[in-house]
Amino acid sequence: MDMLAKMKEIICNYVEIDPETINEDSRFIEDLGFNSYDIMCMLGDAETEFDITIDQEEIASCRTVGELIKYCGGLVNE
């Protein structure tokens, strides 16, 4: 399963949304309806799923699904 598909799976545990409508441009707060607590928990799931450690400072500027995938992808490749 590619990273976008995995990320959609994780996101759909948090918000009631059709996974087909999620794309790399989807913004967590404005488009998907996440709040800051949801985001932190979702990042925790991403850490477990991809076996990575997310740096809070570095992730602070990630606002879209695509940006998060890019960030997590970079850590996976390391």
Binding site: N13, Y14, V15, E16, Y37, D38, M40, C41, M42
Partner: peptide, 9 residues
């Protein structure tokens, strides 16, 4: 106080 209610469950 943290509600701990992030997932749909």
């Amino acid at each position: 106080f943290v509600s701990r209610r992030s997932t749909l469950l």
